[in-house]
Design a protein around this nucleic acid. Structure first.
Length: 478
RNA sequence: CGGGGUGUAGCGCAGACGGCUAGCGCGCCGCGUUUGGGACGCGGAGGUCGGCGGUUCAAGUCCGCCCACCCCGACCA
């Protein structure tokens, strides 16, 4: 990677993405095909994501725990759809400690089964319910084609698993978590997402209903960015998760599961990034403000650094980095930190020392337009306001971009045309798995979701022409 | 797993017709000059040419086998 400039997005979007992830030092390829190393800068972003989510989970009564990585093979086989969905992509351990295992172990692709097994032991009475547990961990799915963050053999995520006394409660929990994901995406990541329900073909293996937040990437492809499943009594029956109700009658629990993974980092990259590099939303950015000191000689250096230190101390509420490297020029630093997505850059040089000012450059607006010279006095407030402005602007920009690429075709020909030319279709849809398959075959587009927000009324299905009451989004997806 | 491609310094590449000490750019290290949008000079370090085998006086270079990775298809948070 010797060229200074990234491959422009318009030239080759996936090349842009691959270069950026590596150059920004978010992640690197591991020696095993399809595996990645999350580097400190990428992990710092993930930690901020974890924080934002974990706070929301705790606020809604969830607790964290840790379940094992290995799951007996037989567990998976207890739920028919589940095993069918996951068996093609399992990593299986057959040897341990040098000898063949009596029963193969799978490396968890998700933990419904082993958690279900434990819940059946822990839950006896309605008084034990609900159980609201989340775990932060890693899982393995042996995917064919991999991309850093978007699809790797091993990835990091959180998976919540809850058990409830009634179907209504389970559904309420499923929707509550969908709302939490939506809130997180909008208000922390500035990623406008469309919450909705998955179709029968797209739902989680073993779920009764799956919900999703769908985001539009910079190339207009859709990315499923978080999911919440109502598992009904499927896993409760498979794993005997039963409780005695108030009337001393044995009942099966109603369970849910919900997850959001390091894939979301991909969503952030591809929602906000531009040809210059990453743009991180201020609330999640590992570094919110980078300070670049500028000086020509030791005397200037001393004065400038005094100011830099003082300003840095005043900004203690923010994540601030002072780039005091002597071996590269300020111009180099500007480019580098822009590439790495730092939302706000502060330049402090001799002129600023003299005028009690600093220069601020917004990452979301490049060039002179995004640059301003502000007083050192009240800098914390100025910076705080600017970060909020940037946060809001990123969401507004991404929302505008998304809305400009959603269309409402009047017929199937128009539909195909829109998909062909990179857009999403918002259409009346009569649920039908065969028709969904045909559309996928024709256009490569899939039903992304049936949005929670519906216009009401009736219309004719874009494919079958039948009368229907719901609209859906179709798009090509990652 | 089917089709296509690539393996030469940390990264990107050249060398391919067998022939001397395997080059170039970027990066890296040292010294000096620089520093408000990707600095420059001088000096350096760094390679079992993906692996194994064969042909030959001689193999990055020719032949065979193997391995890895990338791209395109069938699966997916």
């Amino acid at each position: 990677m010797d060229e200074k400039k990234l491959t422009p997005r318009s030239e080759n979007y996936s090349e842009w993405y691959n270069q950026l992830v590596q150059r920004a030092e978010l992640a690197d390829y591991a020696p095993v095909r399809g595996c990645m190393v999350v580097r400190p800068y990428g992990w710092a972003l993930w930690e901020n994501i974890q924080n934002a989510l974990d706070t929301r989970f705790k606020a809604t009564g969830h607790v964290n725990a840790a379940f094992p990585l290995f799951i007996p093979m037989s567990f998976l086989e207890k739920e028919k759809e589940h095993v069918e969905g996951f068996s093609p992509e399992l990593a299986v351990v057959t040897i341990g400690g040098g000898s063949e295992l009596e029963e193969p172990l799978i490396v968890r692709p998700t933990s419904e089964t082993i958690i279900g097994h434990m819940y059946s032991k822990w839950i006896q009475s309605y008084r034990d319910l609900p159980v609201l547990i989340n775990q932060w961990g890693n899982v393995v799915r042996w995917e064919m084609r991999t991309r850093l963050f978007l699809r790797t053999l091993e990835f990091y995520w959180q998976e919540g698993h809850t058990a409830h006394a009634t179907a209504e409660e389970a559904e309420a929990e499923t929707l509550q978590m969908l709302n939490i994901y939506t809130d997180f995406a909008l208000n922390e990541a500035a990623v406008p997402v469309i919450p909705g329900r998955k179709s029968e073909t797209e739902k989680f293996a073993g779920a009764v209903r799956s919900y999703t937040i769908e985001a539009m990437m910079g190339d207009t492809k859709a990315l499923q960015s978080g999911t919440s499943h109502n598992l009904g009594q499927n896993f409760a029956k498979a794993f005997d998760i039963q409780y005695l109700d108030e009337n001393n009658t044995l009942q099966y629990c109603w369970t849910t599961s919900w997850g959001l993974s390091t894939r979301f980092i991909g969503a952030i990259i591809m929602t906000h990034g531009d040809d210059q590099g990453l743009i991180f939303p201020p609330r999640l950015a590992p570094i919110q403000v980078v300070i670049v000191p500028i000086f020509r000689n030791e005397e200037e250096q001393q004065k400038v650094m005094e100011t830099v230190d003082r300003i840095k101390a005043e900004l203690s509420q923010f994540r601030v980095k002072v780039d005091d490297r002597a071996e590269v020029t300020p111009g180099f630093k500007y480019n580098e930190w822009e590439m790495r997505g730092v939302p706000l850059r502060m330049e402090i040089g001799p002129k600023d020392v003299a005028k009690n000012s600093v220069a601020l450059a917004r990452r979301d607006i490049l060039g002179r337009e995004g640059k301003s010279f502000v007083a050192q006095e009240g800098i914390a407030q100025t910076v705080g306001e600017m970060l909020e402005t940037i946060q809001a602007n990123l969401l507004a920009k991404a929302t505008k971009f998304r809305d400009e690429h959603i269309f409402e075709p009047k017929n199937y020909d128009e539909f195909k045309d829109i998909i062909e030319n990179n857009g999403w279709c918002y259409v009346w849809w009569k649920p039908n798995s065969e028709n969904e398959a045909k559309i996928k075959e024709d256009t490569k587009a899939t039903l992304r979701c049936i949005p929670m927000e519906q216009p009401g009324g009736k219309g004719k299905c874009i494919f079958s022409g039948e009368e229907t009451t719901e609209k859906a989004y179709f798009a090509k997806a990652y």
